[in-house]
Amino acid sequence: MTFKKVYSLGLIFLLGILLVVTFMNFNQNNFNNNYDLSEYYINQGVQDTKSINLVTAILFDYRGFDTLGEATVIFIAALIISLLTKRSTSSLVYNNFSPLVYQNISFIVPFLYIFGFYLIFYGHLSPGGGFAGGVVIATIFVLLTITFGVRRTREEDVLRAKSLLENLGMAGFVIIGLLGMVSGYNFLANGQAGFYLGEAGKLISAGTIPWLNLMTGIKVGASLSIIFNCLVREVE
């Protein structure tokens, strides 16, 4: 046991004690404000946004601006990773699996697409949403790359297309937000700006939320698959 180790263990121990003490202390006067904000969301959220999934309602309507921000974070991550990846020289990379795997993957891909888009489009009705759907779509590319390999010469174009999609998704998000301003309200306005909210529980409802979900889904799917491609390329 070196001094450093003892010191760091002691420090970690102290930190743990401090955390627990803090939590205990914070538990004492917990409900003096009664969380009126969350009460409001629970009671009024569905009327306000016509989105059954309250988390989506908060994510894309009440706090849509945060979502724009977090989408930007992924955007930047994909941008920097693709920027720093070296242009690879190898032309074809693939693994040898049994034919069963190839068949199964080919079979599964359309369903994955359907599942991904289902998650995106039903984001305001059921658990899911743009992020989850986007991740599912990204897994399609991951699966395909792992099983069938990738032809580098074609990949350049694919990457370029994906990056275009990503940018389009981000720009689309902002533009949908701007629609609220066009109709005389604030950025990212939804129900107040008079967009068709429809009836809670229907697919076409909740104004801009499904569209924002779609944009986010496209964006996340593209970004994550870019990140994956670049990481794979770096590892080789």
Partner: peptide
Amino acid sequence: LWILTALVLLW
């Protein structure tokens, strides 16, 4: 470790 030391001291 320095960061944590500062944190624990202040806290």
